[in-house]
Design a binder for these strands. Structure first.
Lengths: 133, 133
DNA sequence: GATGTTGCTGCAATACGTTGCAATAACGAC
DNA sequence: GTCGTTATTGCAACGTATTGCAGCAACATC
């Protein structure tokens, strides 16, 4: 991590180390708020702005990706999960991932029809799941 | 409008009238904040909570639909536009609509594969448009 | 027109994120 | 180890959206 930051002229600070540590223990999706909270557990003096700014940096480095839940709140996931989209059930609140394979037809349709390059990991589709219908 | 509210035991208030007026003059997509602002132009004493709560009511009635922009903020659109999804270019900020026809393959894929009923009007897909690639 | 119900409003507080700015501290060079 | 540069931090303020609650006012009824 330190190397990757330095390679871009960025710095390796205690606050960034803390967030990276938290992320390394994180599985699946987390909201920004949860990450802030977890950083605070490690270091109560953590401030939200630092965490969110660090997340931006890590996203540029490709370490994390973020999308938005059905309520529009940030959701981060840590790589190197395969790229995937998200499915949310409005009724039960359940969430699933859409694999790149499964999304292939979606991506292809927008690509060939409009020349639009879908950022799959930022996609969240809301609706109702089989059980809730 | 008044009839539709009364039919459900709801009330037709000056604040609701103001929002409906604003909406009737609105084309395309608007953020919640913009709607609050426009209501304030009509009546400076308007408060955000009332506007957002009224929007919820109107959504239940099917008058408006909301989704989230690429930054997760609310975006409303007024019916009776046909149901459609949204496409956002991360680079230029442009936005387009995805017609139900164009989305048919997406909807069908998730429907048959997972039994998931997509709420198309709540879908926002982020990526890069043809010009920005 | 007066009255009772109860849906609505406005306020205040809270949550989640973002941004400007001055002070700090990481880092490279000596 | 010291010093200078400048990326980062922490603070404070702001923007957007939600929620609890007490008082208000729409509406139906009389």
């Amino acid at each position: 991590m330190r190397e990757r930051l330095h390679a871009r002229g960025l710095r390796w600070t205690p606050q960034r180390r803390a967030l990276v540590t938290v992320l390394s223990r994180t599985h699946g999706h987390v909201t920004g708020a949860v990450l802030v909270e977890r950083c605070r557990e490690q270091d109560p003096s953590t401030t939200p702005s630092t965490v969110y700014r660090t997340l931006e940096v890590l996203e540029e480095l490709g370490i994390v990706r973020h999308g938005h839940g059905p309520d529009g709140r940030q959701q981060y996931h840590v790589l190197p999960d395969a790229e995937h989209g998200h499915l949310h059930c409005r009724a039960c609140g359940g969430a699933w991932e859409i694999s790149a394979d499964e999304a292939a037809s979606i991506v292809a349709a927008l690509e060939s029809g409009r020349g639009f390059a879908v950022d799959l990991s930022h996609v969240t589709i809301v609706g109702r799941c089989r059980d809730c219908r």
